[in-house]
């Protein structure tokens, strides 16, 4: 899993753990969620899962599954969510999830 791009400096544009790359990846996962109707949705860091995308909590379960499929053990979404209160989950932005995923990937790289 080690490549030139991922062993160089943190935040390298285009690297897997770069926030922009993670955002594009998560946006793709969201658009591909079954039954969520987000095929053409505009998704930015500020987008709210609940109010903007109108995702039901069961859609977030599916998203957590997509993240696990893509990133494997390196990103533990269950752990991230376990630390949030219900109202924090409702107010969750795409950017918050992006930052968590990017930081997890960097931490996994550091070993």
């Amino acid at each position: 899993m080690t490549t030139e791009a991922t062993t160089t400096a943190t935040g390298t544009p285009g690297a897997e753990h770069d926030e922009g790359t993670v955002l594009r990846q998560i946006a793709t996962m969201l658009r591909e969620l079954p039954d969520a109707g987000l095929d053409d949705a505009e998704i930015t860091r500020e987008t709210l899962f609940h109010d903007d995308l109108e995702l039901e909590s069961i859609d977030l379960v599916a998203l957590a599954g997509s993240l696990r499929e893509h990133y494997g053990e390196r990103v533990n979404v269950a752990l991230f969510i376990a630390d949030l209160e219900l109202d924090e989950i409702i107010a969750l932005t795409v950017g918050q999830l992006v930052d968590y995923v990017a930081e997890s990937l960097r931490a996994a790289e550091r070993g």
Binding site: I81, A82, I89
Partner: peptide, 16 residues
């Protein structure tokens, strides 16, 4: 309701 009520609350805590 759905399983999400546990997935985001008791589920991870019990696993841990």
């Amino acid at each position: 309701d759905s399983l999400a009520s546990y997935y985001f609350t008791l589920g991870p805590a019990f696993s841990a």
